[in-house]
Amino acid sequence: MKKSKLIRYSFYPILFCLIPGVFILFSCLPAFSGEAGLASRIKNATQKMDKKNQVEASIPKMKHIIAVNVEDQGGTFFTKARKVEINRFKCSACHNNKSVAIDNAARISHADIQVVHGNKEKSLACNTCHSEKDRDFLVAGEGTKIDFDHVYDMCGQCHFRQKKDWIGGAHGKRVTYWAGERVVENCTSCHNPHSPRFEKQWPKTYSVPLK
């Protein structure tokens, strides 16, 4: 083949291989942007935000919540009140030094509660947590009274790591909303204080053996 023809005819394949090749390389460019993306975006987001207007939706005010007596990283936060959940609060209605006539006392007595808390040899006793002097409160190790709504102070005596995580947000659960005022579940919202470990159960559903 003549040299000029060869040059002329090879121009097209070279053109049609180089240009797509360059295009494909350009489509690889995002790979070179590196780790700069997500991690630095999160690190640089240090400006405090208003809890209320992160999303354009109104978060309804929740009922039966109390302010926690310590602050989290964002200030005051709330947890669920527990006294409303206890059916027969106030305990002092029965547990007092007066003689009281109670209907169905045998049925509603709770001396049969099994305490599975602590290890087998040295399980917790009822009066480890419940104040003998005032049944409407719990009692801390040094004798200070703890309200049922602030049960986290009780649990946090031993489970201080979980309490720290709970204040920060790594333990426990928020109630329904991720935005708006921070309302979290209280300790006893999830854990039965007399048997706090979650029970073994069957899974709620199963994943199909695939075809």
Binding site: A45, K48, M49, W178
Partner: peptide
């Protein structure tokens, strides 16, 4: 939660 909110639980984690 919101990663851009420095006070969020996810940021704490």
């Amino acid at each position: 939660g919101n990663l851009l909110d420095p006070d969020s639980e996810i940021r704490f984690v």
